[in-house]
Design a protein around this nucleic acid. Structure first.
Length: 576
DNA sequence: AACATATGGAGCC
DNA sequence: TGGCTCCCCTATGT
């Protein structure tokens, strides 16, 4: 529901302002109390710097006669006037190493370094605390003119295709309440999630180690994991809709695997590193994969810019690999147009998203090249008509093209949203709500935190991509980690979230239970499965390296089935 | 409580 | 082009 969520947001925003003031006061007090060594998280050695301060802007000055200070150029600049030399004991900013300010968390509020461009919109002159896109999220849209090309193609589109897009907003329920507990069986961070297309309550999850989990989120004990399908990052999963017992998986180990979900038998479909590891400059990783169900064609892209076509039955490659992004750069994603499966959207590390006709492919044959400010994490056609494109870019902008047959030179909208790249996080990807006939609602996790009741939380945002308005922000006081992986159920009002190693299932809050918010005292139960603790059965630590780049090519692809039973235990984390 | 560490991209030379 | 350094609202284990 838009209205309540909005109200909550405003409320939180005003609370944040109050906190800012608080922390400023705190800052003052602490600095008045002077040389306290309140250096928070170590790292920088020079915790305090003695420095002669010529300017009188500084309030926290102390009188001293430090000989070293007298020799400093700043002192000389004072014209040799004898008298008390003022020096100040100041903190060094961890970000820019300059003095006079500090950056970092003050309680639940993060203070930006004023010397850096805004962490949200990347523009200089302000910080995230004062960024217009943060203060008023609904105005975070950089407008672009609606361009009608007025070509015959556009006319055909307007009359024929546009009618398919429902202009009536469907009932929209935000799955904002944690349904089942904190599911922990992945040993590494979750990298992808997919709902089973036909089997109710079944979710598939992949992690950085390559572990594939298939489990029922209603009957939590019904869980299977496959730990030998892939040897490192599971980047993408696709169901064969012609045979939904088969799952295709793409991995940074350079292989595509097909797994029969009933028998657990896995078969490699493609291995781009048949000769094994011989250094990072030759190791091919697969991030992008999609399936053209009409043609039975598997489309795969590697980390060197090449696209491969694969017949899913014969498992044979069709033609030669085609360079679709800058040579040597990673293709981050592929998506076949849901209405016209031969139309392909690719996104890449070369700051471009490109549209292709897979029937006539050659490196220069892109139907369109969509320029971005930085690496494009993902690009998706809208789920029903396929006539919109939404991309997530590392420049903290979600871009939307409303009409793929129109003028694609610049996006219809750019929505400023915090989803920065961080090497330790799975890249953020804004995804359409597959249930939304109007093709406007998107979901994406948020990087920067907001202060909610003294706790810094990173919500999952529901965005109206036609206006940039924040429809809802989903969060829970017990989830303090960032949630970069989010998947909306194709039919039900359910959201699955991957946050670090945990998985969460959200459902709409029951309308019956009122504003009393009895949820607050209720802690999230943690379901730790047998292998969840990174410890080997013998009690020794799993010291196997996190290195993604070890062999893997020669590994047997026989899927190993493991069953676990869950142990539910209450979690008593106390939050301020 | 203070560490170490996994790790990708940008920007420099 | 390649090799190096920095980035600096991560999460977790020791």
């Amino acid at each position: 529901m838009a209205a309540p969520a909005r109200a909550r947001f405003v409320h939180n925003r005003s609370r944040r302002r109050a906190d800012e003031d608080d922390s400023d006061d705190e800052d003052q007090r602490r600095q008045d109390a002077s040389s306290s060594s309140s250096d928070d998280d170590g790292g920088e050695e020079e915790e305090e710097e003695m420095e002669v301060e010529g300017s009188d802007e500084e309030e926290e000055e102390a009188v001293a006669d430090e000989p070293a200070a007298r020799e400093s150029p700043a002192a000389a600049g004072r014209g040799g006037r004898k008298g008390p030399i003022t020096i100040s004991l100041k903190k060094v900013c961890k970000v820019c190493k300059k003095t006079g300010h500090e950056a970092g968390f003050k309680g639940a509020v993060y203070i930006d370094c004023p010397m850096k461009p805004c962490f949200l919109c990347k523009m200089p002159g302000h910080t995230t605390l004062t960024c217009p896109h943060r203060v008023a999220m609904e105005h975070g849209v950089i407008p672009a003119p609606r361009r009608n090309t007025n070509t015959s193609l556009d006319y055909v589109f307007q009359s024929q295709v546009k009618g398919k897009i429902s202009m009536v907003k469907p009932r929209f329920l935000v799955p904002n309440q944690l349904e089942c507990g904190n599911i922990k069986f992945h040993q590494r961070r979750v990298t992808c999630l997919e709902f089973h297309p036909t089997r109710n309550n079944v979710l598939l999850s992949g992690d950085k180690k390559g572990l594939l989990g298939i489990w029922d989120y209603v009957k939590l004990h019904e869980k299977i994991t496959y730990d030998s399908v892939h040897s490192c990052i599971l980047n993408s999963m696709k169901f064969d809709t012609a045979n939904d017992g088969v799952l295709y998986t793409a991995s940074s180990d350079g292989t595509i695997s097909s797994t029969d979900l009933d028998t657990g038998i896995g078969a490699p479909l493609l291995n781009l590193n048949p000769d094994g590891w011989s250094g990072p400059s030759t190791w091919r990783m697969i991030y992008g994969m999609d399936l053209n169900t009409e043609k039975g064609l598997l489309l795969v892209a590697d980390s060197f810019g090449f696209l491969y076509l694969l017949d899913r039955r014969s498992k044979e490659r069709i033609g030669q690999p085609i360079l679709i992004h800058k040579k040597g750069s990673k293709v981050t994603g592929l998506h076949c147009n849901p209405a016209q499966p031969e139309v392909l959207l690719s996104s890449g590390n070369d700051h471009f998203a490109r549209i292709w006709d897979t029937r006539k492919l050659d490196p220069k044959s892109a139907l369109a090249s969509l320029a971005h400010g930085r690496v494009v994490n993902s690009g998706y056609f809208s789920p029903r008509s396929g006539n919109k494109i939404m991309t997530t870019c590392q420049d903290n902008r979600i871009r939307v093209w409303d009409y793929i047959f129109g003028n694609l030179e610049s996006p219809s909208r750019e929505i400023v949203h915090s989803h920065d790249f961080n090497r330790h996080l799975t890249p953020f990807k804004a995804e359409w709500d597959p249930k939304d006939y109007s093709e406007t609602v998107a979901v994406i996790g948020r990087y920067i935190s907001e202060n909610y009741n003294g706790v810094a939380l990173h919500p999952i945002d529901f965005i109206d991509t036609s206006t940039g308005k924040l429809l809802a922000e989903v969060m829970d006081p017990d989830i303090t980690t960032i949630s970069p992986v989010n998947k909306l159920h194709p039919q039900d009002d359910i959201l699955a979230t991957g946050s670090s190693r945990s998985i969460f299932i959200w459902k709409p809050k029951n309308d019956v239970d009122d504003p009393t918010e009895e949820r607050t005292s209720q802690k999230v139960k943690e379901y730790v499965y047998g292998s969840g603790s990174r410890k080997k059965p013998n009690g020794k630590h799993d010291n196997s390296s996190d290195d993604d780049s070890d062999g893997g090519g020669g590994k047997s692809k026989k899927a190993k089935k493991t069953r676990f039973t869950h142990t539910a235990k209450g979690k008593g984390k106390s939050k301020a």
